[in-house]
Design a protein around this nucleic acid. Structure first.
Lengths: 140, 140
DNA sequence: GTTGTTGCAAATACTTTGCAACTAT
DNA sequence: ATAGTTGCAAAGTATTTGCAACAAC
């Protein structure tokens, strides 16, 4: 990947007091390259096929760091594993999952966000984060 | 449990072409008894402590049947396991999870439901089910 | 050179499954 | 009698961890 991705990564590693390694860069590059929702195994296998020396353990460990530093977003599909996607800017979105095709559509709706805050507030809480997934089927 | 719970269960078993057994009744009774969000292990252990002859396998198998027939609702907390709660009527609700205490608050908001339908529709889909969890902290 | 990082394989946590014994009908 | 159900232990799936070899600084 380009220079940009290593600058971003380096910044995160510095704030965490961690070292820069090929493996960490490779995992981050791979997540950036295909900006889709992928599981750890998929990322691992893609790297292995590219002859990059990396292990599953390192993939998981790196994703943890990236997630903690908001470079990666983790999402739970409900079938055991987790999917990951890059957080390019700080844009937030929720997911619609097509039950027929498995396609994942991202959406964002301001009213929805506000409504959640309002509901939480009515109960004396404030929303720190949320999980919102619509399992849908095509109309017709 | 009373007669009511076995009538409900029997109906489900009949539509599924399954037999009525002590174990299935015991699992369903236990879920009904404590109407809270509990994991499979908790349900299993409670039954064992009551000297009811049941296995983990049967607990999981029974929950599957109950879930498929909408007597039980499954919810994913995101930490690996699933929590289950009875679906007494057909009432639907979402969850607010307190990040400080782990307390789970149920909520239902009509506007929220409608908004989701509207968003899906705009993308050419209709919502079959959804997962909506707010991870919250107390105000002040 | 020191300390963090890696890969490996074993461990973990939750859930599912094959199969022989058992039980509802 | 027969076909479905159970318990057990083994297998499965996704992820985490201990540790010795290795690499970054």
């Amino acid at each position: 990947m380009g220079k940009a991705s290593s600058i971003i990564l380096n910044e995160v590693l510095k704030t965490e007091g961690l070292r820069y390694t090929e493996q960490r860069q490779a995992v981050w590059d791979e997540i950036l390259r295909i900006q889709d929702h992928r599981d750890a195994e998929d990322i691992y296998l893609t790297l292995v096929r590219k002859n990059i020396k990396v292990s599953r353990a390192t993939v998981y460990r790196t994703i943890d760091v990236l997630e903690k530093n908001r470079l990666v977003r983790k999402m739970d599909v409900g079938d055991g594993r987790s999917l990951y996607e890059p957080r390019l800017n700080n844009e937030h979105h929720d997911h619609m999952i097509c039950m027929d095709t498995g396609k994942i559509i991202e959406f964002y709706n301001e009213d929805l966000e506000n409504l959640q805050d309002k509901i939480a507030k009515e109960h004396g809480y404030r929303v720190i984060k949320h999980v919102h997934q619509l399992f849908v089927k095509p109309i017709k």
